[in-house]
């Protein structure tokens, strides 16, 4: 078992945990956090494969992509949070409405 394999397995589990979190909560706030956890799993996967392809140093291309990805993910999360807060302020809703069948 190599070091990177531990982390790539963990990345799959973290992604699945985030996915389950998105489905099991109705709160906007927790849905956003669950999305961030999924993103963390994806980034961990990238970086663990960068370690696998290391020669003198780890593969810098995934590293650079993850750094850009982190900033983009945070920007998106900030936008999502602002939307959730506006919805809460305007309607008092913090969750998705339950649809009637």
């Amino acid at each position: 078992m190599e070091t990177y394999q531990i982390y790539s397995l963990a990345s799959a589990v973290i992604f699945a945990v985030g996915l389950a979190g998105i489905f099991t909560t109705r709160l906007f706030f927790k849905k956003i956090i669950a999305t961030k956890i999924m993103g963390g799993g994806v980034f961990l996967c990238f970086v663990s494969f960068a370690e696998r392809d290391a020669l003198a140093f780890a593969d810098p291309v995934p590293h650079a992509m993850v750094i850009t990805g982190i900033v983009v993910a945070v920007s998106a999360a900030a936008f999502a949070l602002a939307l959730a807060r506006r919805i809460q302020q305007l309607t008092g809703q913090e969750t998705f409405p339950v649809e009637e069948e």
Partner: peptide, 23 residues
């Protein structure tokens, strides 16, 4: 920490500062 272990120190700094700190 995991990224520091994987040799991605830049990513570790960015994660700790932006994703954990700023967010």
């Amino acid at each position: 920490l995991a990224w520091a272990r994987l040799g991605a120190v830049d990513v570790a700094i960015a994660e700790a500062a932006i994703a954990a700190g700023f967010l």
